[in-house]
């Protein structure tokens, strides 16, 4: 390839790929602002003749989307907070504290990482039913309170904490929990943010498990509600697009704001293979 041609060719291809990647999302936003029925014409319109927020108003007033939004926000916040607490303490302990069988347990966990979660779903459902957690927020939160991937991510990062630092604090008479709170957590901050972003996006986007465990309409998360709404409103494209915007926009905003941490975590996590 001649050097003169390379730059326009590469940048042109990148631009094309970016258009393919992003245009369905931009188009979703555009259709969500159209009047009912406007998108069901040929040729498909690219921008609304007169932008309106009517679809969003309709979703909040009649489809009860406010409730689903609240469910999603609450469940995502609860899962993220609890699982962070559990995974960060465990990840640190696997890296820096000594207890019998530590390395053997860690190897077992790594092995279990390859088991797809679908395998566990039916017995997990029965177990939660036994515990009275089916069709409740607890059914979503409890199984997600800790995860092998999160522990692994934190452990890899915590390995780099110098032992001398922890020893010095011990000599000063600090308890293990005190050391964790005042020395370890500040050092682990970057990976904590990374894991928080991962958990947040994963929980918000999760579809199959909430679909299985939540049967009551009023407990639905946004993705579950959207799937069920789209079955009732097959023809109401504009309304469904507004619902899709409400579901996707929060995660896209979080991703764009914190993408540095997310992509860094992806690279650390990918070393697991």
């Amino acid at each position: 390839m001649k050097p003169g041609f390379a730059a326009p060719l590469v940048n042109g291809a990148l631009l094309g790929a970016a258009v393919v990647a992003v245009s369905p999302l931009l188009w979703m936003l555009s259709v969500s602002l159209m009047a009912p029925g406007e998108a069901s014409t040929f040729p498909p319109p690219l921008i609304p003749a007169r932008a309106t927020l009517g679809n969003y108003r309709e979703l909040f007033a009649h489809a009860g989307i406010g409730r689903y939004l609240a469910n999603s926000v609450f469940l995502t916040a609860a899962v993220t907070l609890v699982s962070l607490a559990f995974n960060v303490t465990a990840g640190y302990a696997f890296a820096k504290l000594h207890f019998t069988g530590r390395d053997r347990i860690f190897k077992l966990l790594l092995g279990a990482l390859v088991i797809p979660s679908q395998v566990a779903m039916v017995p997990l459902f029965l177990l939660l039913k036994h515990l009275g957690l089916v069709n409740s927020y607890g059914g979503v939160i409890v199984p997600a309170m800790a995860g092998i991937f999160g522990i692994f991510l934190v452990r890899q990062y915590a390995l780099s904490i110098p032992d001398e630092l922890l020893e010095a604090a011990r000599i000063d008479g600090a308890s293990e929990f005190r050391i964790f709170r005042s020395v370890v957590v500040p050092l682990l901050k970057p990976i904590i943010v990374t894991l928080a972003v991962f958990t947040l996006l994963g929980t918000w986007n999760d579809f199959i498990w909430p679909l299985i465990v939540l049967t009551d309409n009023s407990l639905y998360t946004l993705p579950v509600a959207l799937a069920s709404l789209s079955r009732e409103h097959v023809q109401d494209n504009e309304l469904m697009m507004a619902g899709s915007v409400l579901t996707t926009l929060p995660v896209l905003v979080v991703f764009v704001a914190l993408q540095r941490y997310y992509i860094q975590g992806l690279m650390v996590g990918s070393v697991k293979g």
Binding site: T89, A90, A120, P123, L124, L126, L127, P143, G147, E176
Partner: peptide
Amino acid sequence: FERAAWWFVAPALSVIAVFFILPVLA
């Protein structure tokens, strides 16, 4: 130290054991 370490891993390990490993074996 041993006891403190177990306090750190016990919550996460019990969740994984009860809500993942156990269902997989089941």
